[in-house]
């Protein structure tokens, strides 16, 4: 347990350095954020067009879907910010031989890699998510109590850690292929499935996003709770997060033992 706490505090000090780095590339950061928001707006345009043709989608109104969308973006923003460097394991660390340097450090290599993340553009996701959540809470006239606020903060972080754990699991492919980004990306993109009520999917996809890649626990079940539709499933989220992280670390350590330097 003390080991876990030590690692997390070490990680936080890494994040602090990345934050400072953000101030150096101010213009790139702003352009990146704006373009990220722009791509999301294209998706929102699709939702708007869908609701020109129907009043509700399996019982969800336009505002409900946008709230779900916003809550998802909160978690995605946090996880993109914190775990972005997982994409670099293959191309940047292993292929170039920088991974050997990281192995020499007296901390777990996973910590030094994810601590290196500095995806400022993720703040665009986060900002847009926050905007959507606030406007939709006002539109739907949901009373924002302190408890609800606390729930949103807590479950957004849990959601981000679920995404992070799934990405960590798939990042091990880089130990064999030296290129992890496409593999992670392919599986990561399935989170977009959970930006819509899962009742629209067939059995296989429901199984995929609740059990195999449990992205439904990131935002879907929490949002159902905030909307008063189903209040119990969300308490499984922390359990899912912990189980996934245990698996992720086990798998990652196994892959680490298989590591062979590229000898650069």
């Amino acid at each position: 347990m003390t080991n876990v706490i030590k690692n997390i505090s070490l990680y936080l000090s890494f994040v602090k350095t990345s934050m400072k780095e953000m101030l150096i590339y101010r213009l790139d950061c702003i352009v990146g954020m704006l373009s990220q928001i722009f791509t999301e707006l294209v998706e929102i345009l699709f939702i708007w067009i869908v609701f020109q043709n129907t009043e509700t989608l399996v019982g969800w109104t336009f505002e409900h879907i946008l709230l779900l969308y916003g809550i998802t973006l909160l978690s995605v923003g946090i996880s993109d910010f914190c775990f972005d460097a997982l994409y670099d394991i293959g191309p940047k660390y292993i292929k170039r031989g920088d991974f050997d340097k990281i192995l020499l450090r007296p901390i777990h290599p996973l910590i030094s890699i994810i601590g290196d993340s500095k995806e400022f553009t993720a703040l665009g996701y986060f900002g847009l998510g926050l905007f959507l959540v606030i406007t939709m809470f006002i539109k739907l006239a949901i009373p924002v109590t302190f408890g609800l606020l606390l729930q949103i903060v807590f479950f957004s972080i849990i959601g981000a850690s679920i995404i992070g754990a799934i990405n960590t699991i798939f990042s091990i492919s880089s130990f064999w292929t030296y290129r992890s980004n496409e593999v992670i990306w392919s599986f990561y993109r399935t989170y977009t499935f959970t930006q819509y009520p899962i009742d629209i999917y067939n059995g296989f996809i429901k199984l995929l996003i609740t059990v195999i890649l449990p992205f439904a626990f990131v935002a879907y079940y929490p949002t159902m709770n905030y909307l008063g539709m189903n209040s119990y499933m969300l308490y499984l989220s922390p359990v899912v997060a912990i189980v996934l992280w245990v698996i992720a670390i086990k798998v990652w350590n196994f892959a680490l033992n298989q590591y062979r330097s590229t000898g650069n």
Partner: peptide, 27 residues
Amino acid sequence: SNFYLFTLNRIVEVVVYIFVWQAIYNQ
């Protein structure tokens, strides 16, 4: 592996759209 992953990416992208329209059609 590029080829397979790119193709998989495409398929993942289309799933959402198809299911959303199917749900609307059913309604």
